[in-house]
């Protein structure tokens, strides 16, 4: 038996919005410790890794490991039927986990919606994400990162990210011209969520597709801050932390040109 009741149901709605364009079908791997999802996009350029810890649910029950194969577009459609303030409960039976039950309770507990989502067999690629010591780690406001990606998309389809001692610079060059945005590291004691924090081992310069970064910024509503981790010739990690877990996106760098 798998049962997970999420008081902040709106979080699940936001999460689905932030993965559905990158990945169509994926397994939700449920265990005692929580719910995890890892999947690459079709072109194998981007990877999504999502974790919701069991402590974030009330209650959470998972007697044995479950792998729930889900079409994320279908799940997203059903989740749109839940109110933003609804409590969402997910359930799957031991024997016949061929469907996932979802119930949506409104805050007054006087309206309960119940839905069933058919599950599917998904032949999942075996992924392993190694622990990495990154050359540069940047913590910055997520809305600022979203704006930079959106603005530079006007100029080019790629962005070069350069990190040096106390500056991160985003540069785009295209047919119409070029643009760049530099952010200096700042610290705000009153509003730490507005600071730009740069931890640097060595300078980094890497180029990435803006189309994918724009997709990653769908995670912006999940957290006020975004964490960018970069190392030369390594995939970029873009992470949004939540109280109950995280969503991490990885993006392969562009090489040569």
């Amino acid at each position: 038996m798998f049962e997970a009741r999420l008081i902040q149901g709106g979080l699940l709605k936001k999460l689905l919005e932030s993965v559905k364009e990158l990945v169509t079908d994926a397994n939700f791997d449920c265990s005692e410790s929580g719910i995890a999802l890892q999947a690459m996009d079709n072109s194998h350029v981007a990877l999504v890794s999502l974790l919701l810890r069991s402590e974030g649910f009330d209650p959470y029950r998972c007697d044995r490991g479950f792998s729930l194969g889900v079409n994320l577009n279908s799940l997203n459609k059903i989740l749109k039927c839940a109110g933003n303030d609804d409590i969402i409960t997910l359930r799957a039976d031991d024997n016949s986990a061929d469907s996932l039950s979802l119930s949506f309770e409104n805050p007054n507990n006087d309206r309960i919606g119940e839905y069933e989502l058919k599950l599917m067999d998904i032949d999942q690629e075996h992924l392993s994400i190694p622990e990495t010591d990154y050359d540069a780690t940047i913590i910055m406001p997520s809305a600022e990162f979203q704006r930079i990606c959106r603005d530079l998309t006007v100029v080019s389809e790629s962005v070069t990210i350069d990190v040096s001692k106390d500056t991160i610079k985003f540069t785009a060059e295209g047919e119409l011209g070029s643009g760049n945005i530099k952010l200096k590291s700042t610290s705000s004691i009153d509003k730490p969520e507005e600071s730009v924090n740069i931890e640097l081992g060595q300078d980094v310069s890497l180029q990435f597709s803006l189309k994918y970064l724009m997709n990653f910024t769908k995670g912006t509503p999940l957290s006020e801050q975004v964490i960018l981790c970069l190392s030369e010739k390594m995939p970029l990690l873009v992470e949004y932390k939540m109280d109950i877990g995280y969503i991490r996106y990885y993006l392969a760098p562009k090489i040569g040109d």
Binding site: S43, Y250, K254
Partner: peptide
């Protein structure tokens, strides 16, 4: 896309 590398090398277990 020009010069776009893939993630297989980093994350895919054979």
């Amino acid at each position: 896309e020009t010069g776009q590398s893939a993630l297989d090398l980093f994350f895919l277990e054979s």
